[in-house]
Amino acid sequence: MAATFTKVLLLAALACPCLAGAQAVIEGSVALLRPRVEPAGAARYSGSAPVIVASSEPMLAVVYLEGQFPAVTNPPRVVQMAQQNLRFLPGVLPVRKGTVVEFPNQDDFYHNVFSYSKAKRFDLGRYQKDEKPAAQLFDKPGVVRVNCEIHQQMRGTILVLETPHFTRTDTNGIFRLENLPAGKFVLKAWLDEGRVLERPVELRDGARLRIDFPGK
């Protein structure tokens, strides 16, 4: 476990093109979407689906910088999306294209992970806690929705990006992107439901930008 972690750090360090020198920083906030949960058990739904408590995790946004970046040549990074307490953790996981994601089962019962998204279709089958976590390489950019066929309410989203510069906002929508190269880019904020907000940015070395993505 510790070895893996070291490897991740190492890879991260390698992925950064230039650690030296003054790097640009973008800070800001994104107006997050409210989770859309309609009142359960509305009278209409006679033959309705079983009522499932919505995930308590708020819908986060992913902010990333889009532009031309050198391709990844190194062995792929490995990150994890765990299955814990009947949830995918984290619920939204941004990764760079070519990243391997592991799905360790941390619950005491079977889980399954599958995706029908075009960016990556896979089905990891069912497995338990102590089995070797299944891993999947994400080599095409796009939104990958992952589900557990056993547990309806488990939903995860993996955002496969071409850029190495991305981050998740916190639950208040605040984000900070560091170590950004200079140049002209487009800053995008991906919200769930497929909404993407964008803003062109021009970064200079050592610059500190503040960009807010207001709501509608």
Binding site: G47, S48, A49, P50, F114, S115, Y116, S117, K118, R121, V143, R145, N147, C148, E149, I150, H151, Q152, G194
Partner: peptide, 27 residues
């Protein structure tokens, strides 16, 4: 099927979101 099949719903969601022939066919 509609209420319990996670796979069907996931496939429908994928087809709706992506709208591509491949997704629809998968559905």
């Amino acid at each position: 099927l509609v209420n319990k099949s996670v796979r069907l719903r996931a496939a429908l969601q994928a087809a709706l979101e992506e709208g591509e022939a491949e997704s629809v066919n998968l559905l």
